[in-house]
């Protein structure tokens, strides 16, 4: 009998190992591809070179797209935190009739295939004859990013002890001060956690961008997709590596600067 927990433990480790391998294997392959000097994936790798990174970083096309993607993602991050945070507060606190229906409504961009959202926005913009301005792209991204912030903020608000706000009020804080001194700092981990999702959703956004980008104003995923049709080489892998590192560093920076550790007991 004493062998049983061991066998269970081994199975447990094996399953976890398999899951981690499954999650990380694509990244490992991308890494090999990015560092391999040949313009195709060869296994085993024939050497290590940074030529694809060089190509990526020296291409004005890629760099422009990377910059645009970053800037759009930052604006989307800010917008979706403000909109998502305020929506969550209104839905959780506002005593709004039908707030459940409204919550579902605000979450609905997640239910819809993003490609439809992209196409619909594209047609709307064309019908309104406003072209495809970058703010239109940002709006599209924000639309699908807000639900993430909404969800994480609602989760924090759900576990929020409102007595803490009452304690602030009774000891002399006006409603505005209660918000800034207590409510905001306490929901901040939720808002920022959602913000990280929003950033990544925007930075990696493809289906919506596909329709909404302007010629010469294409985001990185769109440029990569189109590049792949004509030149499938290691620059794609290098670009993917850079994207992954970018996303990871955003998470790390936000964690360090703002601190995602929740004060709220969840």
């Amino acid at each position: 009998m004493s062998a049983r927990p061991d066998a269970g433990h081994i199975a447990y480790l094996a399953v976890n190992g398999a899951i981690i391998t499954f999650l990380l294997a694509p990244i490992a392959i991308i890494t090999v591809f990015a560092l391999n000097p040949t313009p195709y994936i060869s296994f085993p790798p024939v050497g290590i070179s940074l030529r694809w990174f060089e190509k990526f970083f020296s291409s004005p096309e890629f760099m422009g797209a990377l910059w645009l993607s970053l800037q759009v993602a930052v604006v989307v991050l800010v917008l979706s935190m403000v909109i998502g945070g305020l929506c969550a507060l209104a839905l959780a606190r506002g005593n709004i009739p039908g707030s459940r229906v409204l919550t579902a409504f605000f979450m609905s961009p997640l239910m819809l295939p993003a490609i439809l959202t992209g196409l619909a926005l594209f047609q709307l913009y064309l019908l309104l004859d406003i072209g495809r301005p970058v703010w239109g792209l940002i709006m599209g991204h924000t639309l699908v990013a807000v639900p993430y912030v909404l969800r994480t903020t609602l989760a924090v608000l759900h576990n929020f002890d409102r007595r803490i706000e009452e304690a602030a009020a009774v000891h002399g804080a006006s409603p505005a001060r209660v918000f800034f001194e207590v409510t905001l700092p306490l929901i901040r981990p939720g808002v920022f956690a959602g913000g990280i999702f929003a950033f990544i959703v925007s930075f990696d956004q493809f289906p919506i961008s596909l329709f909404l980008v302007m010629p010469q104003g294409e985001t990185l995923p769109v440029v990569l997709f189109n590049y792949m049709k004509f030149d499938l080489d290691g620059a794609i892998a290098a670009a993917s590596m850079v994207s992954i590192l970018m996303a990871v560093s955003v998470v790390v920076i936000l964690e360090k600067v703002i601190g995602l550790k929740s004060y709220v007991k969840l």
């Binding site: 422009g64 910059w67 645009l68 800037q71 970058v134 302007m214 010629p215 010469q216 104003g217």
Partner: peptide, 9 residues
């Protein structure tokens, strides 16, 4: 389009 991107940058 170029001014677009430049202004963004």
């Amino acid at each position: 389009i170029k001014p677009d991107r430049r202004s963004i940058l």
